[in-house]
Amino acid sequence: MSRDFLAVELAPADGFEPRWRSPLERALRDAPPGIRDLSRTGKLHVHGDVGAPPGVEVVRVAPDRALVLCAAADVERVRGELGERVVDMSAALAGLEVRGERLMRRLADLDLDALPAAGAVAHVPATVLRDGDAFRIFFPQEYADHVGAVVLDAAAGLA
């Protein structure tokens, strides 16, 4: 078997048109600017040594494990390039972007000068990346409503 049942990017087939829905869609409906839904980012778990094909970001979580991020459209290609021990986690992890160190400090105890890192965000396990003032947070999608509510609440406290 091929594990195709983990693939998120579908083309319409057999007369059906499956509709994708972000786990954060409802939670971020009233989000202020600066908070973005990144759930559709391609995310792959890779075991063993990881090379870095072009166009991807590699977050090494442990010596033998990494989270690889890429554009949704590239998941299939990157999966192929990364070898055998790869699991498509695009559907497993929700993602969002927030702006500002202060907000991030109200969400996590992580050392913001030492990102990317894996750690608790809003009391759920997460992986956090930083680009200047922007922070990308990836976490199990079943917590999407919870994390969304916490992020909006914390942001409102700083508004």
Partner: peptide, 14 residues
């Protein structure tokens, strides 16, 4: 602190 407890919801919760 904030009054949020982590709860897991399935994609069909709503």
């Amino acid at each position: 602190g904030r009054g949020h407890e982590p709860a897991k919801r399935t994609s069909l919760h709503h």
